[in-house]
Design a binder for these strands. Structure first.
Length: 153
DNA sequence: GCCAACGTTGGC
DNA sequence: GCCAACGTTGGC
C-alpha cells in the first residue's frame, strides 16, 4: 500500500517546472528532524507526492511526483560550499537524509492554499494544521480530493 | 518587508 | 531538563 506525502519548495529555488525539466532530483537541504525522519524511515518507492509551491503567489499544490529512491545521507550537509552545510554531519553519523523523487505531472490547475483551507474535506491536513513542516504526510482521501480539484476545470 | 509560529541552541 | 534567546519558515 503506497503512502502519500506533500513536499514544499519555493519556486524561485526549485519549481515543478525545474522538476519536469530534470525528470528526477534529490530532495536535499531538508534540515528539520521531523521531515528528516519521514524521508529516512517512512517514504517508500512508488509513494506519491504532492508538490507544493511555498512563498509563491498564490501558494499551492502544483503537481505530482513519485518516490524513486528511499532515504540516504544528504551529501550537501558535508559540503562546506553548500548552503545546506552542517558541520555536525559526519560520515558515521550523517544526521540529514534525502530521497529521490521523479516528475509525474504538472497539474492543469493550481490548487491554492486558500482553496485548501476552505475545503471541508481538507481541514485536518497537516498543511492547514501545522503550516511549517516541509515534508509531511497526506491522508488518502486528502490526496484524492486535491488531485480531483486540480483536474477540475 | 513584517511578523507569528515554532524549531533549535546553549547557559544554568 | 528548563527556558530565554535566537533563527527560520512562510503567509500575507
Amino acid at each position: 500500500m503506497a503512502n502519500y506525502w506533500l513536499v514544499k519548495s519555493e519556486p524561485s529555488v526549485y519549481s515543478i517546472d525545474d522538476l519536469q525539466r530534470d525528470g528526477r532530483t534529490h530532495w536535499d537541504g531538508v534540515r528539520n528532524y521531523q521531515a528528516r525522519n519521514i524521508m529516512r524511515d517512512k517514504m517508500k518507492k512508488g509513494d506519491l507526492v504532492l508538490f507544493y509551491h511555498s512563498n509563491a503567489n498564490p501558494p499551492g499544490v502544483v503537481g505530482m511526483a513519485k518516490v524513486v529512491r528511499t532515504g540516504y545521507p544528504d551529501h550537501t550537509a558535508r559540503d562546506p560550499q553548500s548552503n545546506y552545510y552542517d558541520p555536525k554531519s559526519t560520515e558515521e553519523d550523517p544526521r540529514w537524509y534525502m530521497v529521490d523523487i521523479e516528475f509525474v505531472e504538472k497539474f492543469p490547475r493550481l490548487v491554492s492554499l486558500p482553496e485548501i483551507k476552505d475545503h471541508p474535506q481538507l481541514q485536518e491536513m497537516v498543511l492547514v494544521r501545522r503550516s511549517r513542516l516541509s515534508v509531511q504526510p497526506v491522508r488518502p482521501h486528502e490526496f484524492e480530493t486535491i488531485v480531483s480539484l486540480a483536474r477540475k476545470s
